[in-house]
Design a protein around this nucleic acid. Structure first.
Lengths: 233, 233
DNA sequence: TAGCTTTGATGCTATAAAACATACATCGAG
DNA sequence: CTCGATGTATGTTTTATAGCATCAAAGCTA
């Protein structure tokens, strides 16, 4: 069971939370518009085409968002960590979800009612502007990703994905082990390649001592080298 | 010389303009914060890495925004038509430009001062929300594009690009000729392929009577077929 | 524990698309 | 008009990577 007490506090008290800069009144009202839900590993939160039914904030856990492409091949377009938003693009843009969200591990998700978001939060220009900045950053990321995923070669794409995982989830206490334990298939779907090629290329990196593999544990041994591989394409 | 009179009116009077829903006061103040500039064909508006110096609205003309990837290969990530915004992501996200903007034909661009945008426009929650919706739509587009550009085959990618040009710029009076005259290189850069392959595949489409080519004029003869090619990958 | 399913590893083959080469057409500058 | 530059066209070669097949290991379930 995940700890919902500390999580709930974080939603309004942690500066990294989108709700941090609501005023006291708004924060109090927010409490009446949220609900929490537990998700097990590999559970669907929403699917491509669904109508969004709330503003979702990940309190604990990890979530991947992917789109299905040609022949059902999935491309992971985003990964979320605690205090990150899920599916807000569809809600705010008044569209249906254009990706599917699935938990990568047991997760706790806070749902805020659309009414609160539209009628109160968005009337607060600090909140609105924070949303705008968030969207701008994500759009920049998405554009950059379009280019790298289309232009880099397999090694470059995989290296970039590993760096991305490092930046998003950081390392374990040892300072080298990625704090994310994805299946080879997920790594492949993140990097726009087949599972075979993800496995193969991870092995190559390992034999080149750039990383070390122990099942799903990946240790980054030579970050500089990895960054060079990523830049090179 | 482009007509700046009608263009300037459109900025506040055309419902499609982002400034349409400013109130009367704001619209008047806006007038003191804008300037117009003419650009010739193939002129740079800003480059990747530049600091944004205003909120740009295309009044007349066409503009492409591209990112440089591996080995200088460019990927066009966006095309703009009149009343569209240029480079607003960087300004609002307080980042540097992550793409380069170049005119495809003689263009007229309206620059709004950042002060007006930040101190007045964004205080208007209708305006903010319109920006949010715009960003959401563009992010959805970018995510979708990431998947199609990585997964579809050449034919599918080119077909998609042609449909994209049709949706954005429409047809000439004959109802079939695309109202956009790009070089083969630009078409290639839009579709993530080499120029040779763009030329080759356009020829194939032409011999299949899906399109007709006359220099840079492209006529879409069989839109259904083109859509099928695009969907199929 | 045995049997089944899923995941990971690796070799081989097929193929889409890049890279390269060459030629022709068009266009603007001198 | 001529010349070089640029854009378009098309054939050939090379290569990266998908696709497939097989096998081993690990994880589940009965």
């Amino acid at each position: 069971m995940l700890n919902s007490e500390t999580g709930l506090k974080d939603i309004v008290e942690n500066p990294k939370s989108i709700f941090y800069l609501l005023n006291q009144d708004e924060k109090e009202e927010l409490q009446h518009h949220i609900s929490l839900s537990q998700y097990k590993k590999n559970e669907f939160i929403f699917k491509e085409g669904d109508k969004p039914n709330g503003f979702l904030l990940l309190v604990e856990g990890k979530v991947k968002i992917f789109k299905e492409g040609v022949g059902g091949r999935e491309q992971i377009i985003r990964m979320t960590k605690p205090l990150g938003l899920i599916g807000y693009r569809a809600l705010l843009g008044e569209e249906t979800h254009n990706g599917t969200a699935v938990t990568l591990e047991q997760s706790l998700i806070c749902t805020v009612s659309p009414e609160f978001i539209f009628n109160r939060a968005l009337k607060n220009s600090d909140f609105s502007y924070r949303i705008i900045r968030k969207l701008c950053k994500e759009l920049g990321f998405s554009n950059a990703r379009t280019v790298t995923l289309t232009q880099k070669h397999i090694r470059g794409r995989l290296a970039e994905s590993l760096i991305l995982l490092k930046d998003k989830y950081g390392f374990e206490h040892d300072g080298t082990t990625l704090r994310a334990f994805l299946s080879r298939e997920d790594i492949a779907n993140l990097s726009n390649m087949t599972t075979s090629n993800a496995i193969r290329t991870l092995s190559t990196f390992s034999s080149e001592k750039v990383i070390a593999i122990d099942g799903r544990k990946i240790r980054i041994l030579d970050l500089n080298r990895l960054e060079r591989i990523s830049k090179l394409g």
